[in-house]
């Protein structure tokens, strides 16, 4: 049996979610090596104790060999940066000898074994899950789901599985390179973080498996065609298949609104949401300041705006002048 390495990428604000991911993964896969790619730094007075967490190892962005890291961090917001590191992290794990690597978003919870994915990696190098695997039927659902995926990417990159064989490694290197240069939320330019890039995968690479099992990566965007319910034995099903993992995107009001829209006639999906909120409360990160992200502020504490990041991203002169824009402070953007 090849070793399985599984990682997620998160800031401290998502550590509660990541804890649920690891807790549920551990239950089904005690033998996997679990990694947290940490895209954050500790605030003052906060101690992070990886040895008390449910993963095996933490990798910080500094360890990923990203050139010019301060500028890189500054030009990305939290979602962009947390997704941009996924490619470098995948290559990092391959560099450490990983044979089968699975990425899962921190807001995923695993409900049944992912052994079929591990098996598929014996015959395929890259596995992707499309947002939709059945055509939608109502105008609203087509707009929300199918057209939504044409904007944001056909495959949901909350999940990715790659084997360390020729095509898998070629993919990892290509993805890493693209993310280092173009991992932005910039829909008019045809970009959406790490995700939209993967629309190219079936065209650019061989040995690709498009996993069309309704039990994988169930979320608000595909609930309309994958009703969640229990069978008589108490198993969770999605679209009639065993629910492998559920993607709790935005357990805030927006996410709930989509569940309301597509949750259907079964209470089970609302029970899932209730359970997830309970687990979030149980895994709350103690002593973390509200809204904390180490790279969300200048060193003097002032919040970095989207405009400032964009200005830095596009203004060659600014980039040249400030190799560490965090230290430079907000003042340098005022006359830009």
């Amino acid at each position: 049996m090849a070793r399985v390495d599984c990682f997620t990428s998160a800031s401290f604000a998502y550590l509660d979610r990541a804890r649920i991911l690891f807790e549920t993964l551990r239950r089904h896969h005690p033998d996997w090596r679990l990694w947290l790619c940490l895209v954050d730094e500790e605030p003052e007075g906060f101690t992070f104790r990886p040895e008390q967490e449910l993963f095996d190892a933490v990798v910080r962005t500094e360890a990923l060999g990203i050139e010019d890291l301060a500028r890189f961090k500054f030009e990305h917001d939290v979602v962009e940066l947390c997704t941009a590191v996924k490619g470098p992290m995948l290559c990092h794990l391959f560099g450490l000898g990983a044979e089968k690597v699975i990425y899962l978003d921190p807001d995923i919870a695993v409900f049944n074994t992912l052994a079929p994915v591990v098996e598929l990696l014996d015959t395929h190098d890259i596995i992707l899950t499309p947002h939709q695997i059945f055509p939608d039927e109502t105008d609203m659902a087509i707009r929300d789901n199918e057209i939504g995926s044409m904007k944001y990417g056909i495959y949901n990159l909350g999940f990715l599985a790659v084997a360390a064989r020729a095509e898998g490694i070629r993919f990892a290197q290509w993805w890493r390179d693209r993310l280092l240069a173009y991992c932005f939320d910039d829909l008019p330019s045809g970009l959406f973080t790490d995700q939209k890039w993967c629309d190219h995968v079936p065209g650019l690479f061989d040995q690709v498996k498009i996993l069309r099992d309704p039990g994988y990566n169930v979320a608000s965007w595909n609930l309309s065609r994958r009703p969640v319910d229990f069978d008589a034995e108490g198993n969770l099903l999605a679209g009639g298949a065993l629910l492998r993992f559920f993607h709790f995107t935005k357990v805030t009001w927006v996410g709930e609104l989509m569940l309301e829209r597509y949750g259907g006639a079964h209470i089970a999906v609302f029970e899932l949401l209730r359970w997830y909120r309970d687990r979030l409360a149980a895994h709350a990160v103690a002593d973390l300041p509200e809204g904390w992200w180490a790279f969300g502020r200048f060193r003097d504490g002032q919040a970095i705006t989207r405009e400032q990041r964009l200005a830095f991203r596009h203004d060659r002169a600014l980039r040249d002048a400030y190799p560490d824009p965090f230290s430079a402070g907000a003042a340098v953007f005022r006359h830009g």
């Binding site: 008589a232 034995e233 108490g234 198993n235 969770l236 629910l243 089970a268 359970w275």
Partner: peptide, 15 residues
């Protein structure tokens, strides 16, 4: 919802 007391460790009990 009535669960029918599935086996211990079933998804239903988990949530």
């Amino acid at each position: 919802a009535f669960c029918g007391a599935p086996r211990l460790g079933a998804n239903a009990c988990g949530i």
